[in-house]
């Protein structure tokens, strides 16, 4: 199919030279049609976003066990949260995870994207690189769980083979989070690379040619041309991946389940555990709301810092 032609004019009523009466009728009909078009989505929004947001807010001020009606207890959940070391531990482990995950993933994805851009347009290469994204987190987690195993895992075989000490990747507190982060980098780096790659493709070739004529090295062109022109795409990718990264749950649910001790008890897993294994839906909601607020602040700051809305391409 052909790509749609581009029209930047804002949406407006489209009848030509309408009479006043006609215009009114058209507008009315259009408004009715619009509401009908939006209706299913609106129902979905109200039922599964708006209502849960309101009731979640309410639950966070209650003692709620799912069956008996929620009982209002004021800010008790929030005072508990402030003094709950496991909550802060969960925030810490989650942040540490996000930091490793995003840092590694962005650098690798950028590298892969640039390599692909400079070397090959091959669909096979692109297909291979994004392959892990197609399989579920659960699958990726289980495969690596095996490959990282202390005794049976190929990685420890290699480590032992070159004469180093085996590493309990999932059993050692300091290793557990980096290992989980690595697994998710593996799953997402190709996907992220393709996003960045698309952004690279949008950079006009002549900019590079001009750079090359000026005698710029690859590295210099990367720093002075690619990175600045890629900034809006990178910023968008970061917003999406960071938000996604905070959702880390699946990998932990099928591997460490929060352990060793509490080293991988990330916030989503802790909230899940609190609500669905210990029936404390009120406290779970309070933690979820706290996470929401923190994420909102974080996104705001991030957008400010990366100036996502300003492309140097103009």
């Amino acid at each position: 199919m052909t790509a749609p032609a581009i029209d930047r004019r804002p949406a407006r009523s489209s009848a030509r030279t309408p009479t006043k009466k006609n215009l009114f009728g058209l507008k009315r009909r259009e408004a009715i049609a619009a509401w009908l078009f939006v209706a299913p989505a609106l129902v979905g929004f109200i039922a599964f976003y708006l209502w849960p947001a309101i009731s979640g807010l309410y639950y966070s001020f209650t003692d709620f066990d799912l069956l008996t009606a929620p009982e209002f207890i004021g800010v008790a959940n929030y005072t508990r949260l402030l003094s709950d070391p496991l909550f802060w531990n969960a925030l810490g482990t989650t942040s540490w995870y996000v930091l490793i995950n995003i840092g590694l993933q962005t650098v690798l994805a950028l590298g892969i994207a640039v390599l692909m851009q400079r070397l090959t347009q091959s669909m096979v290469v692109r297909g291979v690189v994004m392959l892990p994204y197609l399989i579920a987190n659960v699958i990726a987690a289980l495969v690596w769980f095996y490959m990282f195993d202390f005794q049976f895992g190929i990685i420890n075989e290699i480590i032992a083979g070159i004469g180093l000490d085996r590493v309990a990747f999932f059993g050692e507190s300091e290793w557990a989070i980096p290992t989980v982060a690595f697994i998710n980098v593996w799953r997402h780096m190709g996907y992220t690379a393709l996003l960045i790659f698309a952004g690279l493709q949008a950079i006009p070739k002549d900019v590079y040619e001009a750079g090359a004529i000026d005698g710029g090295s690859e590295l210099r062109m990367f720093r002075s041309i690619t990175l600045p022109l890629l900034r809006p795409v990178l910023a968008m990718v970061l917003v999406v991946t960071v938000t996604g990264s905070f959702q880390i749950f699946d990998t932990i649910a099928v591997t460490t389940q929060g352990g060793p001790v509490n080293a991988t008890r990330v916030i989503n897993y802790y909230i899940f555990d609190m609500a669905f294994n210990r029936f404390d839906f009120g406290y779970g909601s309070a933690m979820a709301l706290a996470l929401f607020v923190l994420l909102a602040v974080f996104t705001f700051v991030q957008l400010r810092l990366t100036r996502a809305n300003k492309s140097d391409l103009g």
Binding site: P52, A53, G56, Q247, F276, A288, L291
Partner: peptide, 23 residues
């Protein structure tokens, strides 16, 4: 309405999961 929809992008899924489960 559109702003409301977009605002929903910001809500971490875990926050709506608990009430949605109840629903």
């Amino acid at each position: 309405v559109f702003s409301a929809f977009i605002a929903a992008l910001m809500v971490p899924p875990i926050f709506t999961t608990i009430p949605n489960f109840v629903t």
